[in-house]
Design a protein around this nucleic acid. Sequence first.
DNA 1: CGGCAAACCTGCGAGC
DNA 2: TGCTCGCAGGTTTGCC
Length: 280
Amino acid sequence: MPELPEVEIVKRALDSATKGGRIEKVVFNRPDLRFPLPATLPEMLSGQTVKRVQRRGKYVVVFVQNGHGFVLHLGMSGVIRIEDVGGYTPEKHDHVELYLAGGRRIVLNDARRFGFLESLEEASWQSYPAFAAMGVEPLGNDFSGAVLASVLAKRKTPIKVALLDQSVVAGIGNIYACEALYYAGISPFRAACDLSADEYEALAMSVKKVLFKAIEAGGSSLKDYKHADGKLGYFQHQLAVYDREGQSCPRCKCDTMQGDCVQRTVQAGRSTFYCTKRQV
DNA sequence: CGGCAAACCTGCGAGC
DNA sequence: TGCTCGCAGGTTTGCC
């Protein structure tokens, strides 16, 4: 599923597709995803102009002129398509369709239905439970090694597991947790509270770096979303360790001496990929 | 409260 | 070819 960078790309695409535009109608093709779809939402949105699109962690929030709106989470398999209604071919698992004035539509496709869409009022969006509990935005100005050190103080859980906790840092998922630890040269098994100040700093920088890099990669595909298949929610990353078990990481590869340095293990039920030579 | 397994649901690739 | 198994980028819940 989309982690922060993919969600950021979706947010930008929705923003640009709806800018100043009017929503003509909203169609639900089934009553629920992970949770029941908000039955009154189509009525609240139709005829309204989109006022604001934003992202918080892995969530996208959309508000229309009358102050109503919704929050969207893509779960593991959620994908957004933006397409001309004319050239439209429905796909399996197209659950929500949002028709825009001007002949385009936004489609939410989610095979596994771990995603969800709920009503949200602009006046009170910050008290949405997931947001109330959510940690610092890693791409915001507030994020630093010192902040990381302070949130992780007393947390003895492995640093990899802590990075996945949305109340620690918002938006990091399994891929970028692995990648950030790799670039910081930190073992995923280290206790979260036990890093040095330099290591917290290196980790914070690595988190920003991998997220920015991924957004950049997705941003280039965004340019063509009107022409290509238009699926937003996934894109190709250049990964150093994730899903590369048995291969060599970029740095070991450059050294030529090392091979098969990337190993896979399981922490808190999730795969962790790391370089056995560079992450200590 | 901390930590972990299980649950939610479908699809895909590997292996037989 | 066709079956079964294990695995998948997230989050919540319920149990020690």
